[in-house]
Design a protein around this nucleic acid. Structure first.
Length: 981
RNA sequence: GCCGAAGUGGCGGAAUUGGCAGACGCGCUGGAUUCAAAAUCCAGUUGGAGCAAUCCAGUGAGGGUUCGAGUCCCUCCUUCGGUACCA
C-alpha cells in the first residue's frame, strides 16, 4: 500500500478503522485538484470552482470523436448574450439537459452536449449607437460574462465546441446556406427543392432573351427580391418581420410601425408549408406546440371561384367559353377570382369584397365612385397595423360601382372594397356570404346589404328563426336551402358537388391555402450577417437588375468597418455607408455593388445545431459523415416563446438542406421540451385609494380610462403588502387589520421594473451552484410555470448539508468521516431503501421528472442519516445517483470516500428487483370505498386470500355486525373493498 | 372572441394513470441541545368535533358513470399563456 500524503490523512480516518489497510485504501491520483482548505463543513464556494477547473483541465466532458453504439445529442436553445447576464430562467432548462447528459454518459451513451451564443441582434447595436462602442466589443464582453456564469453552474458542456453566430468562421456558413437557398427552386410536382440549374425554362421565356430568362430564374429562387409592404419602424431604423410586430408596435421596444413598400429579400417558406405541416406528425413534441405550428401554417381547403365582371348580357357567352377553355391558372381580366372554404354557400353570396391593394381595383371602380374609392384606399394605406387592429374594429368599405355575376345562378352582385379583406391571403378578394360568415354579416348589416340564408341550422339551434329570417349569422354546417338543385343536401355533399360542377364548367377549382407568408429576410441594420450577393451595375453606377451570389470560396463576406452606426431615419441600410473598397467589386470586367441589407437574427439560430457537430470545419458547413452519426437532435429544451418562429424557420432551412443533400434527416429536432417560466416571489398586493385607504379587490373594477377604480368611483392603485399583514380567509387572503379587505396573492413575471429579478450570481454566492441547480429542478415539473422562492433554495441547500453530514463528521476540527460509516452490507431494510431509490431515481430521470427523483433522494438521506450503520457501498451508490443533479458535491464526497478520478466516469447503478420484495405488505380494507381498517398480507396474495384476511380482521368483523356484504372486491397488492348494506 | 394549459393544506408541489389524498420541501407549533442565539436533532402540522380511541367533511363549483373519482364524462366559474378580421 502506498503511503498517504499527510494532507490526505484527515480524509482517511474512519472511526476507529484504518482506511490505510482496508478496501477503502485506494490511491489518490496526482491529477486530483489540490485541496485549498480542508473544511469539515460543506463549503460550495471552495468545492465548486475546484471541480470546475478539474473538469476543464481533464476534459472530462469532451465529446467522443465518433459516437459509440448509442448516441445522444442533448441540446439547449442557445441564449442571446444580453448585457444583463443570465437570469434564473436560463439555468432551468440548462440544468435539465445537463442532468440528462450526465446521466446518459454514465449509462455508457455517447453524448454531444454543446453550448453557444446567438450573438447578432438589436441590443448590441442600440448600445453601439448610444456609446459609439463597436457592437463586437460589447458582444464579446457579454459572451465572456455568460460563459463565466455558465461555467460557474457546472454544466457539462463540451466547451471546445462553443460557437457564436457572430464568429466569421460560423457566419461564413450561414452565408453559404443563404447561397443554397438562392440556388434552389421548389419543384411542386416532386415537392422538394432542386438546384436552380435544373429549373425548366418555358420556351416563350427563352425566346424573349437572356434578361427574361434571368428574371424568370430569379422569380423562382427560394431566396428572392420582392417589393413588399413592409413593417418599417422609424425608431429602430429597420424593417421588421410580421412576427416581430405586436399590436402594431415593435416587439423590441414597442415603437410604432408603419407599412411602406420596399424591395426586400424574401424566403419562400410557403413552398414548404405542406411538408412543414406533415412533418409535425413524426415529431415527439408537446401537442400544444405542434398545434401552434400547424395553426401558424394555417392550412385550409376550399375552392377558387371566378366571378364574371363584364356586362350581364355577356355572361352566358363567357361561361360557355370557359366551359371549353377550362379554369385558367391565372385569373383573366374579365373575372374576379375569390378563395372560399365554403363553396357550398355560393348561392348565398350577396356581394363581393376586394382588398384596397387588389390589382383589379382600378378596373373595377366605376367613374362616379372613383373619388370615394380612391380616398378610401388612400386612408387604408396610411393606416398602420396598429390602427387596423385597434379598438372594436368596426368595419368600413366603399362600393366600387361595379358588379360581378354569381356563376351558379347568373345573378349580378355588387363589388365593394374594404380593408377587412386582406391582400396577402387567398386571392385578396372574397365572395361575401353574410348569412354564414360573422364578418360578412357585420358588414352587410352596417351597409344594408341583402342576407340570404342557404344553410339550414339544426332544429335545436337557439336563434334558428332569426337565422332563417336573415337576422342572425350561422357559421356551422347543415342542410342547404335557397340553393336551387342543392337544396336538402348536407354541407359536405354540396361542397363537393358545387366544386365539381365549377371545375367541369371551367369556373372554379378546389384549392388549398395557407396563412403562412413568405419570410421577410432582410434588415436595415449593421449587426447581422451581410448577404453574399452582388448587384451588377452599369458604367453610370446604376443597377442593371442582374445579380449573382458571391463565390462560396470567397466567403465570408465580412462586415465593413464603419465610423458610426446610427440609423438615418431612411429605410436604407447602414452598410450603404461603407467605403467603396467594401461596397464595389469587379469580376470578369463587370462591376458589382454589394447587397447592403443584413440578415435577421433568426438566420444564425436556424442551423447552429448542425455546426456543433463539426464546429471547426473550414471546408464544409458540416462533414456528412459526422452529420449522419449525430443527427437528429435527440432532446431539445428551451422556452415556449420560440414555439413558432425559431422552430419553424429552423425546420424550413433544414428541409432545404435535406433536399440539397447537406443533411440526412428530414427533421432536425426529434424530441422537444418547453421549460416553463420562472416567476418572481409570491407577493401580496392590494388596492389603495388616494388617501392610502385600502379597498377590497372585490370592490375594484376597470375604469373607462383603462386604470382601476373602486365601485364608488375612487381612483385606486396597486401596492405590495407585507406577508405578516395578511391572513387566510375562505378562498382568499384579507388584511389582518380589516378582514373585510380582500387582497391578491400572486407571483409576477420577473422584470426590472418590478424589481423582482433574481440574479444567479447572488444565489450561487449565497447557496452554491449545486443548490441552485437542485432547487430549479425541485420547484416542480420542468414544463410548469412556477414562482421563485429563496426560502426554497435554502431548503434544498440544507438537504445538501445533510448529504454532506451523512458522510462527513462536521463536529470535528478537521475533515473526518462519520463514524457511522461501515464496511458492512446493508440490512434488509436499508437494502430495500437503496434499491427502491435507484429504481425511482432511474425511472424519474428517464422521464425528466426531476422533482420527484430529488424528493426520493431526500427520503434516502433522511433514512440513512438516522441509521447508525451506514454501509459505504450504499453511500457510494447514492452519490452516483445524485451526481448528475449536484455534481460538485458528489465529486467532492466521492473523493473524500477515497475514490479515484471523476464520479462522472462511474457507471449508473442497477437496481435489484429481489431487494424490493417485502415479506408482507399493508393494504387497506374499505367499506363502500372508505378505508375502515388495514391488514397485513403477502405481496403476491390472491384476491381470495386477501378477502379472507380482511374478513378475519377483528375490526372488520366488529364493523360488519348487523350488515350484509353485497359484494367483495380485491385488487392484488393494493386493497380490499367490501360493499356492505 | 377563439385556441391551449391549469385549479389539491398557509406556500411550492406528490399521488404505479380509476385503488390508503397531501410524498418531498418551505413555513408554522412544541421539545432537545445552548449562558443565549444561529445551526442541528426529535415530534407535530388539511379543516371541524372530542380528554381520547375515534368520527365527520375534504382535491375550483354543480351534476353523472363506478364497488371505488384529484384522476373518466357533462355544465359552469376562475387564473395563466397564445392569438387576433386568414374568408
Amino acid at each position: 500500500m502506498p503511503p498517504f500524503a499527510t494532507w490526505l490523512r484527515p480524509y482517511l480516518r474512519l472511526g476507529d478503522q484504518s482506511l490505510e489497510s482496508g478496501p477503502l485504501a485506494t490511491r489518490f491520483h496526482t491529477q486530483h485538484p489540490p485541496l485549498l482548505t480542508i473544511m469539515p463543513r460543506y463549503t460550495p464556494a471552495d468545492i465548486e470552482p475546484r471541480w470546475q477547473a478539474y473538469w476543464e483541465e481533464n476534459k472530462t466532458f469532451a465529446t467522443p470523436e465518433t459516437p459509440g453504439s448509442k448516441k445522444r445529442y442533448v441540446l439547449d436553445m442557445f441564449p442571446y448574450p444580453s448585457g444583463d447576464g443570465l437570469h434564473v430562467g436560463h439555468p432551468e432548462g440548462y440544468t435539465a439537459t445537463d442532468i440528462v447528459a450526465r446521466y446518459a454518459r454514465m449509462r455508457g451513451e455517447s453524448v454531444l452536449h454543446p453550448m453557444g451564443f446567438d450573438a447578432f441582434g438589436l441590443p448590441a447595436e442600440e448600445h453601439a449607437i448610444k456609446t459609439g462602442e463597436h457592437p463586437r466589443v460589447q458582444t464579446q464582453r457579454n459572451i465572456d460574462n455568460f460563459t463565466r456564469q455558465l461555467k460557474m453552474l457546472g454544466f457539462s458542456y463540451d466547451w471546445d465546441r462553443v460557437l457564436a453566430t457572430t464568429d466569421e468562421r460560423y457566419f461564413r456558413w450561414t452565408q453559404f446556406i443563404f447561397l443554397v437557398l438562392f440556388d434552389t427552386w421548389f419543384d411542386p410536382q416532386q415537392q422538394r427543392g432542386r438546384p436552380i440549374a435544373e429549373l425548366p425554362i418555358p420556351d416563350q421565356i427563352r425566346a424573349a432573351g437572356e434578361a427574361a430568362v434571368d428574371d424568370y430564374i430569379n422569380s423562382r429562387r427560394l431566396a428572392y427580391l420582392d417589393d413588399a409592404l413592409v413593417n418599417w419602424c422609424p425608431n429602430l431604423g429597420t424593417v421588421l418581420a410580421n412576427e416581430e410586430v405586436v399590436d402594431g408596435k415593435s416587439d423590441v421596444g414597442s415603437h410604432p410601425v408603419k407599412r411602406i413598400p420596399l424591395r426586400q429579400w424574401m424566403l419562400r417558406i410557403t413552398d414548404y408549408a405542406e411538408r412543414l405541416l406533415s412533418g409535425l406528425d413524426d415529431l415527439d413534441w408537446p401537442t400544444g406546440i405542434k398545434k401552434l405550428q400547424s395553426d401558424w401554417i394555417g392550412r385550409s381547403t376550399g375552392a377558387e371561384v371566378d366571378f364574371f365582371v363584364g356586362e350581364a348580357a355577356k355572361f352566358e357567352a363567357w361561361k360557355s367559353a370557359r366551359g371549353k377553355s377550362g379554369f385558367p391558372a391565372k385569373a383573366s381580366d374579365d373575372a374576379l377570382r375569390v378563395y372560399t372554404t365554403r363553396p357550398d354557400t355560393l348561392y348565398g353570396a350577396t356581394y363581393m369584397v376586394v382588398s384596397p391593394e387588389h390589382p383589379m381595383l382600378d378596373q373595377l371602380t366605376a367613374a362616379d365612385q372613383s373619388a370615394e374609392v380612391k380616398a378610401y384606399c388612400e386612408k387604408a394605406s396610411f393606416k398602420s397595423d396598429r390602427e387596423r387592429t385597434e379598438g372594436d374594429r368596426e368595419k368600413s368599405g366603399v362600393f366600387t360601382g361595379s358588379y360581378a355575376i354569381n356563376p351558379v345562378n347568373g345573378k349580378p352582385i355588387p363589388i365593394w372594397v374594404a380593408d377587412y379583406v386582406l391582400a396577402g391571403y387567398g386571392t385578396g378578394a372574397i365572395m361575401a356570404v353574410p348569412a354564414h360568415d360573422e364578418r360578412d354579416f357585420e358588414f352587410a348589416v352596417q351597409y344594408e346589404l341583402p342576407i340570404i340564408p342557404v344553410v339550414q341550422p339544426p332544429a335545436d339551434a337557439e336563434n334558428r328563426d332569426d337565422i332563417l329570417a336573415g337576422k342572425a349569422c350561422f357559421a356551422a354546417v347543415g342542410n342547404a336551402i335557397n340553393s336551387g338543385p342543392m337544396d336538402g343536401k348536407d354541407t359536405a355533399e354540396v361542397k363537393q358537388q358545387i366544386t365539381a360542377q365549377l371545375d367541369a364548367e371551367g369556373l372554379g377549382n378546389s384549392a388549398v391555402n395557407y396563412k403562412l407568408r413568405d419570410w421577410l429576410f432582410s434588415r436595415q441594420r449593421f449587426w447581422g450577417e451581410p448577404f453574399p450577393i452582388l448587384h451588377e451595375i452599369d458604367q453610370a453606377g446604376n443597377a442593371t437588375g442582374r445579380m449573382r451570389g458571391v463565390d462560396p470560396s470567397e466567403l465570408p463576406v465580412r462586415l465593413p468597418e464603419l465610423e458610426d452606426f446610427k440609423p438615418h431615419g431612411r429605410p436604407e441600410p447602414p452598410l450603404a455607408k461603407a467605403g467603396d473598397e467594401w461596397l464595389y467589386v469587379t469580376i470578369d470586367g463587370k462591376r458589382y455593388r454589394r447587397e447592403t441589407n443584413t440578415m435577421p437574427q433568426w438566420a444564425g439560430s436556424c442551423w447552429y445545431y448542425l455546426r456543433y457537430i463539426d464546429p471547426h470545419n473550414d471546408s464544409a458547413l458540416i462533414d456528412p459523415e459526422k452529420e449522419a452519426q449525430w443527427m437528429p437532435v435527440d432532446l431539445y429544451v428551451g422556452g415556449a416563446e420560440h414555439a413558432v418562429l425559431h422552430l419553424l424557420y429552423s425546420r424550413f432551412w433544414h428541409k432545404v438542406l435535406y433536399d440539397r443533400g447537406h443533411v440526412s434527416t428530414p427533421e432536425p429536432f426529434g424530441r422537444l421540451i418547453n421549460q416553463g417560466m420562472i416567476l418572481g416571489e409570491v407577493e401580496f398586493t392590494g388596492y389603495f385609494d388616494e388617501n392610502d385607504q385600502p379597498v377590497s379587490t372585490k370592490d375594484v373594477k376597470k375604469s373607462a380610462g383603462g386604470g382601476r377604480e373602486s365601485k364608488d368611483g375612487r381612483k385606486v392603485t396597486l401596492k405590495s403588502i407585507a406577508d405578516d399583514q395578511v391572513e387566510k380567509q375562505g378562498e382568499g387572503f384579507v388584511l389582518k387589520s380589516d378582514s373585510s379587505i380582500k387582497v391578491e396573492s400572486r407571483a409576477n413575471k420577473m422584470s426590472k421594473s418590478r424589481g423582482n429579478v433574481v440574479n444567479p450570481d447572488v444565489v450561487v454566492d449565497e447557496y452554491g451552484a449545486d443548490a441552485l441547480r437542485l432547487y430549479e429542478m425541485f420547484m416542480g415539473p420542468l414544463e410548469a410555470t412556477k414562482p421563485w422562492s429563496m426560502a426554497g433554495v435554502g431548503g434544498v441547500r440544507s438537504f445538501l448539508d445533510r448529504v454532506w453530514r451523512m458522510i462527513v463528521d462536521d463536529q470535528q476540527d478537521e475533515l473526518v468521516l462519520q463514524s457511522a460509516l461501515s464496511q458492512g452490507d446493508c440490512d434488509d431494510e436499508q437494502n430495500r431503501m437503496l434499491h427502491a431509490t435507484i429504481k425511482k431515481v432511474t425511472e424519474d430521470t428517464d422521464a425528466m421528472s426531476f422533482n420527484t427523483a430529488i424528493a426520493r433522494m431526500m427520503e434516502f438521506t433522511n433514512f440513512f442519516t438516522r441509521s447508525q450503520q451506514r454501509p459505504i457501498e450504499a453511500m457510494k451508490t447514492f452519490l452516483i445517483l445524485l451526481s448528475p443533479y449536484a455534481p460538485h458535491l458528489c465529486e467532492e464526497l466521492w473523493k473524500i470516500l477515497g475514490q479515484d478520478g471523476s464520479i462522472a466516469h462511474q457507471s449508473w447503478p442497477q437496481w435489484d428487483e429481489a431487494a424490493l420484495v417485502q415479506s408482507s405488505i399493508e393494504v387497506p380494507v374499505q367499506f363502500n370505498g372508505k378505508v375502515k381498517s388495514k391488514i397485513q398480507v403477502s405481496p403476491d396474495a390472491k384476491p381470495d386470500e386477501m378477502i379472507q384476511a380482511a374478513l378475519e380482521d377483528a375490526k372488520v368483523q366488529s364493523l360488519l355486525e348487523g350488515k350484509n356484504i353485497v359484494k367483495k372486491i380485491a385488487v392484488p397488492g393494493r386493497l380490499v373493498n367490501l360493499v356492505v348494506k
